[in-house]
Every structure is written in structure tokens, then in C-alpha cells.
């Protein structure tokens, strides 16, 4: 049986795939440093953080929401991991100092990210704050907490084990790429093959119909924002590990790159339509573009202009092709 809606989304995905292949082909001619193994791993390593954020962002946007706080959550959770690893947690009132292993610090960061996401979700579901506003507030709050936690200074010297997360390789493939691959694989199964994934699409497609079909809308939204927070924390761990330091101003503007990846990947900002795979392609396009502009020695100022233009172009093409 031919599946029309699937067919359409394949078509859309192949559009971004063609764009990506085209970019890679052109760049291979323009720069001999581009199509090399080193550079390819470099690009994928660079985009891995954006992929983590964007997978979560895709889920949120599929429900018709948005999460502006991912960049700040990334910074805060990265700093929490670094702080726990380096200084532990001191609770003077109990006369207690807890030391963290690498794994403990990582779990602590992911837990913190989840909680921040959950708070976003609670504001949106319990108190009916529009997602844009709730997560905008969290953007500022989490950034402020990062400054408080780090006192405004980078936390550095985190040790070899932790650095592996960002700079290590396993079977010749960078660890961040492995992490991304696992996240993407899980997200694909969740969105395509689980009830929760289907419900995410249903809530974004028509919230009222979803509610009257017995779906627990609030629970689904809470889960989606919590996932976005947890994934931002994983992005935070990678970022911190790569630099071997937690920067208080890490992740500034990452939410925009992440939204761009989702949109270029063909996910509708009004919800209900899109896919994780599209987002991965979107992130790859942005990553290759960034890398190309650097290799071609384009001035950083122009880089921004060009990136913005590409985002606009992607959406315009999407709209034009949707018309038929």
C-alpha cells in the first residue's frame, strides 16, 4: 500500500539531502582541505553538540512549542559537571563534602538538565505560560545560575577521563559522534515506533483532538521539555569536555543554531510535522556551511549574513514546494 504522507516527507528529506550533497561536492572543488578524513571528523565533532540540542528541540517543536533555554542550560549543566568533578559538593551545614567521580558528575549534570526542563514544562502546562516566554525566562535564569556557580570564571583542569567525552575516539570515530549516534537512534525509535512519539505528533497536530482522544497532553509536554533539558545537559558535557573547561558564557546563541537545524530539516514551527532525521540533516547542513566558510576564509561578519540567508532560503524552498 502506498503511503502518501510518508512519501511526502521522504521527498522533503531528499531535498535537504540533495542540498547537503551539493554543498559537499562544490566545497570539494573549492578547497582541497575540505574533503579529508580529518576535516570530516572535525565537522561531525563540531556539530555533535548542536545535534544533541536539536533532537530535543525537534521533540519540543513537534508538540508546537519552543525551547529557548537550551544554550543556557548547556552552560549551567556543563559548569555543574565541572564543578562537581573538581570541587565536589560541600554542604557546610551537615559538615559534609561529597566527591564526585566522572560518572557521578555526568549524571548530576543530566539530572540538573532534566530538572530545568521539567520546570519549563511545569510552567507551560500547570501555569499556562506560553513556551516562548517560559523558556525565555529560563534562558536568563540558567545563565544567571551559571554565573553564580562559576563566580564568573571558567572551571578548568578536569582530568583525562573527562576529556575523553569531548576529544577521545573509539574505533577511530570521535566519542561525541558516538554519543550523537546513540541519541539519534533512540530518538528515531521513540518518534517512529512508540506511543509517546506518536502522541508528540498528535499533540502538535491538533491538541484538542488529541485531548479528546484520551491523551494526557500535560504529561506529554512535560516529558518533551524534560528530554530537551537532559539532552542540553549532554551537550553541556561534550562542550565542557572538549575545551577541558566550563566557560560561564558557553552555549550563547546555541538555541538559535538548534532552531535553525530543526527548521532547515523541514519541521514545521507550528507543530505536528517533521522528523528527527530531517533535523540531523539540518544540523549537518549548518555544520558543513560553518566549516566551509572558515576554510574559504570568509570574514566572520559575512559568515553570519550567509548563515542567515541559508536559513531563510531553506524555509522559502520548503514553503514553495509545500504549495503544490
Amino acid at each position: 500500500m502506498e503511503d502518501l504522507s510518508d512519501y511526502k516527507s521522504h521527498l522533503k528529506r531528499s531535498q535537504s539531502l540533495i542540498a547537503l550533497v551539493l554543498m559537499i561536492t562544490i566545497m570539494s572543488f573549492l578547497s582541497d582541505r575540505f574533503f579529508t578524513v580529518t576535516n570530516m571528523w572535525n565537522v561531525t565533532r563540531q556539530i555533535s553538540v548542536n545535534v544533541c540540542l536539536s533532537v530535543g528541540m525537534t521533540l519540543v517543536i513537534l508538540t508546537g512549542g519552543i525551547d529557548l533555554s537550551v544554550g543556557s542550560v548547556l552552560a549551567l549543566t556543563g559548569a555543574i559537571a565541572a564543578g562537581l568533578l573538581k570541587n565536589g559538593l560541600e554542604l557546610p551545614m551537615f559538615n559534609l563534602a561529597i566527591r564526585y567521580t566522572f560518572l557521578g558528575a555526568a549524571m548530576g549534570a543530566i539530572l540538573a538538565g532534566s530538572i530545568l526542563g521539567l520546570i519549563n514544562g511545569l510552567a507551560i502546562t500547570r501555569f499556562r505560560v506560553p513556551p516562548f516566554v517560559a523558556t525565555l525566562a529560563m534562558l536568563t535564569i540558567a545563565r544567571g545560575l551559571t554565573m553564580l556557580w562559576t563566580k564568573g570564571f571558567p572551571i578548568t583542569g578536569l582530568g583525562e577521563t573527562f576529556a575523553v567525552l569531548g576529544t577521545g575516539s573509539f574505533l577511530a570515530i570521535p566519542v561525541p559522534v558516538w554519543i550523537c549516534a546513540v541519541i539519534v537512534a533512540v530518538a528515531l525509535v521513540v518518534t517512529k515506533r512508540t506511543r509517546f512519539g506518536r502522541y508528540v505528533y498528535a499533540v502538535g497536530g491538533n491538541e484538542q483532538a488529541a485531548k479528546l482522544s484520551g491523551l494526557n497532553i500535560n504529561k506529554i509536554k512535560l516529558m518533551v521539555y524534560t528530554a530537551a533539558g537532559a539532552l542540553a545537559a549532554i551537550g553541556g558535557l561534550i562542550t565542557t569536555a572538549r575545551l577541558d573547561s566550563a566557560q560561564p558564557n558557553a552555549g550563547m546563541g546555541y538555541e538559535l543554531d538548534s532552531i535553525a537545524a530543526v527548521v532547515i530539516g523541514g519541521t514545521s514551527l507550528s507543530g505536528g510535522r517533521g522528523s528527527v532525521l530531517g533535523t540531523v540533516l539540518g544540523a549537518l547542513i549548518i555544520g558543513v556551511l560553518n566549516n566551509s566558510l572558515v576554510l574559504l576564509d570568509v570574514s566572520p561578519f559575512w559568515q553570519q549574513v550567509i548563515k542567515g540567508g541559508v536559513i531563510l532560503l531553506a524555509v522559502v524552498i520548503d514553503k514553495l514546494s509545500a504549495k503544490d
Binding site: S5, R195, Y201, A202, A209, L212
Partner: peptide, 23 residues
């Protein structure tokens, strides 16, 4: 407005309230 998720397929709409049965 209330009965269907128009963007989704006929199949996904039919199964929406009883998705557990298709697991």
C-alpha cells in the same frame, strides 16, 4: 477542530485512541 489530527494519516487517526493495541 476536535475529532481529527488532519495532518496525520487516516491510519494514525484511527489508531490514536487505541494505540496500545498496536504495540
Amino acid at each position: 477542530q476536535q475529532g481529527l489530527v488532519l495532518l496525520m494519516s487516516v491510519r494514525a487517526n484511527i489508531s490514536l485512541a487505541s494505540l496500545k493495541l498496536t504495540e
